[in-house]
Amino acid sequence: MSNEESKVLQIISNFPNLDGRIRQIAPKRIFTDPLESGEFHQLVSYIHDEMGFFRAHHAVGVDDGENLGFIYIFSDEDNTILAAKQTVPKENPEIESLNKLYPSLLLHELELADLFGAVISGLPDVPHYPLPDGWPEGSYPMRKEWKPEYFNKETMTYEPPEEVQKNG
């Protein structure tokens, strides 16, 4: 059994609900399926406290249509990468910050808020990043329905035609 497989088994033995939803996809790569907020945070606390995943490299936002996915990338002493995915409805993209557990995630979570519209509780009061001041409210450029051709750089307004707004 590989090192990664034994780590997957350890997680499944503690979280039976993740059986079939977490797997090794390549050497040194463990990925989860998109998880609900509660199970995501339980998993992250466990791998941080009990399994030595002390590094958080990255938080990647993805647009899955009706949902937004937030992929948090961790690694341990063996340099095994664990990509834990959290999914939330696009209509109500509320997540909790992991910044207290992993201070290195601050900029990445700020990006998720600015570019994907994630509503993140527990973030410190820091300047906007990376979008400029005056960026239109409710305009999230990394969502698939956001098209650069409808953004006016001079007036800083985003005005898609009505039929685009309806159809997304």
């Binding site: 300047p127 990043y129 990376p130």
Partner: peptide, 14 residues
Amino acid sequence: VVIGIGYNHRGLEK
């Protein structure tokens, strides 16, 4: 220190 970056975000990923 409060660091402000992102002045040159070019939207390359999009």
